[in-house]
Design a protein around this nucleic acid. Sequence first.
DNA 1: AAATATATTGCATAATATTGCAATGTGAAA
DNA 2: TTTCACATTGCAATATTATGCAATATATTT
Lengths: 249, 249
Amino acid sequence: MLKEERLQKIIEQIAQDNKVVLDDLSRLLNVSTDTVRRDIKELSDKGLLKAVRGGAIIGSPVHPHFKERQHIDTHHKKVIAQKALEFIKPGQVIILNGGTTTTAVIAALPRDINLTVVTNSFPVVSILEDYPHVTVFFIGGELNKHAYSTTGHETIEAIRNFRADVCLMGICSIDLKLGLTGFTYQESLVDRAMIETSKYVIALSTYDKIGASDPYYVCAANAIDVIVTEKDPSTTDLSGFKEAGILIK
Amino acid sequence: MLKEERLQKIIEQIAQDNKVVLDDLSRLLNVSTDTVRRDIKELSDKGLLKAVRGGAIIGSPVHPHFKERQHIDTHHKKVIAQKALEFIKPGQVIILNGGTTTTAVIAALPRDINLTVVTNSFPVVSILEDYPHVTVFFIGGELNKHAYSTTGHETIEAIRNFRADVCLMGICSIDLKLGLTGFTYQESLVDRAMIETSKYVIALSTYDKIGASDPYYVCAANAIDVIVTEKDPSTTDLSGFKEAGILIK
DNA sequence: AAATATATTGCATAATATTGCAATGTGAAA
DNA sequence: TTTCACATTGCAATATTATGCAATATATTT
């Protein structure tokens, strides 16, 4: 039996009974429980069900696209996410923009953390949905179907009603002279508003985005407090940023 | 039995009897009282009930989780959804609240329809995400993890910035004298704001909710233009509503 | 076709979660 | 106060999961 057939059958079972049990599936599909477990993990990563000890239960009604975890599972993003965690302290108010990098940070948070998260990103909501001690404020606005986030006038206005301790900003490009720049106009406005309303700004960036630039200006480089990349800061030459008072992590 | 199933059953018990007793659950679920106690603690941590000596009682009025509600009355909801479609015309601005019934209406829309949808419901967004000609405005606010929607002051304020042609309102209870009433305070405020900002209000209600009432007042019955139920209107006796000028479908 | 990568699967082992039990602590009613 | 029912804590037994590895199958390139 093909793997896809198995996955299909698991989905069918869930649709029928709202749950599946590992051992049953193992027998039904004639594969080891390990394989079933891996199948369930795969479906769970896609947001099609929720893996629990011993099996799986029906997932949340949120669209699988909002839950697709594969693109936040890259090695670079995990490293960046792990480094970013040190800047997040319990009890703080965190604001963050859409994008896979910020989503990766949220996914790396311990499940019992106490936080207030302000965001315009639907995937972030779908992760925090079952973090019991995280209060989520969602920033409304017009749905941007590609970025899975909201933008527009309402979004900007709503952001201005918050004051965040920390802004986690997944960025398009950053350059010492040209500042932070973005790929779409609407998102650059949102990013700027988020940065302006935050006490401490952490830019999350893969190393190759440093020194690059995009069409829409967000803010000057010195509006950023920290840049987190996947590289060891001792092996990078970002002295210009350091001299501008920006911490490199 | 999966642990999640146990938790689920405890919730169901609470929803039914407003309380559970440790020993009963221990027998019913075939686990020790220790385990039941731990289950109750877990649910209590999530705010789904209130642990007391010897068992647990209903916490805040328990709104059954969206995940569970979506599988209740599915046939009725489909019928209601189908009837509701006739009131939705291309090009209109539709506002709708959270809940499984409104979600069912949205799911029944033809994929190529041209609409503007204003909502505070995450499941609705996740459906409309890939409707190419639907513009979605999401109403932000504090995430309500049980209803998958937002509530609170920001939500109310944001709603007031829109004027909708049609309001689709999934309702808790409606009574000719007591009016529309809801199960939670926050959601009743949202519902009222949505109704006030709409030209035409369609209440979506299973027949058994008519004549019932809940703790929180939303609006007078005559603020409603149409009530859509799963029954054929010729077989129902809702003459009181008809005399009040409300169309029954 | 052969060679090479890549994916899939099952197994062994270590890590983790769940559960029941026993000992001890605590609050409330008689 | 005393008693008793319940709660809490620590612990051990068991079940489940994660991980690395090797064997095999499958896809891709040369």
